[in-house]
């Protein structure tokens, strides 16, 4: 009885605090004035690198934030893995695959396989053209992950269109992250700054001509290493979401 009383008391207190907090939050939202600040300078100089400003900010001006964000996804994937038994202390616990395997109906077969291919093609376009049109590594990767989702739902994990194993998904993720990390290290090695955009070389920092040509994406824009970083991110996002989805699907239902 006393327990319920204290519970109600706590809820009341929480409600009062929430009310006061909401008042101040909404009040400040009405008074919020914006000044452009750094964004203005990014817009002023960004077109020197590539046409899509958001991609330029993500992969050049603030590429290091994007690295951190990639690692959040990796951390989440590892954590979900640990949750379902991979790498817990005292040896791995393997899970039975309990996904119900239903043979797909004819309609599903006819419609889903081409749809999967179209979605994958869209993902590739979004990834590779990320620095010119809206899109980029995240978008492309998650579009392809959606296609994977669809094919797993229709055909089951064993017989899905991609026919890729857990182990290879993991490797793919590692490769995506290592592409990003190592391109950053190249910048550190030749110019002394981590994640320097070696291919574009907008602050001439003693980068050799050959290296610059090598790392420059063959394209009329001056994007440098941005498309390669996009590809790395796409691989990582794709395999990250696929791994999480398969892990959650593989959980036992009680």
């Amino acid at each position: 009885m006393e327990d319920r009383g204290s519970q109600q008391m706590r809820n009341l207190l929480a409600a009062v605090f929430l009310g006061i907090f909401s008042y101040f939050l909404i009040h400040s939202m009405f008074n919020f004035d914006i000044i452009p600040g750094t964004s203005y300078i990014y817009n002023l100089k960004g077109p020197l690198i590539a046409p899509n400003m958001v991609t330029v900010v993500l992969f050049d001006w603030r590429a290091y934030d994007t690295l951190g964000e990639a690692f959040i996804l990796i951390t989440a994937v590892f954590t979900t893995g640990i949750l379902f038994g991979r790498g817990v202390l005292g040896g791995d616990v393997s899970q039975k695959d309990t996904t119900p395997v239903r043979p797909p109906t004819v309609v599903q077969k006819i419609f889903s396989a081409p749809l999967v291919f179209i979605i994958v093609a869209l993902g590739l376009v979004l990834t590779l053209g990320g620095h010119i049109t809206p899109g980029g590594g995240f978008q492309g990767g998650s579009v392809i992950a959606t296609a994977f989702f669809l094919s797993v739902v229709v055909f089951g994990f064993k017989h899905n269109v991609f026919s890729i194993s857990h182990h290879n998904l993991e490797r793919l993720e590692g490769i995506g992250a290592l592409i990003y990390l190592c391109l950053g290290l190249v910048g550190l090695a030749v110019s002394g700054y981590y994640l320097y955009n070696v291919g574009a070389n907008i602050y001439p920092l003693g980068v050799g001509e050959t290296l610059q040509e090598l790392l420059k994406y063959p394209d009329s824009t001056n994007a440098g290493i941005i498309p390669y970083l996009n590809i790395g991110i796409a691989l990582k996002v794709l395999s990250g979401f696929c791994t999480i989805a398969t892990l959650l699907m593989g959980a036992e239902k009680k």
């Binding site: 000044i35 750094t38 300078i41 002023l44």
Partner: peptide, 27 residues
């Protein structure tokens, strides 16, 4: 200190766009 991506300090902003004279572009 380390500036990621080699982006330097910049003062090219007109005064109406920012409240301080120079800003750091890099992390």
């Amino acid at each position: 200190s380390h500036l990621f991506g080699a982006h330097p300090v910049d003062d090219a902003l007109p005064a109406s766009k920012i409240v301080i004279p120079e800003i750091n572009l890099a992390i």
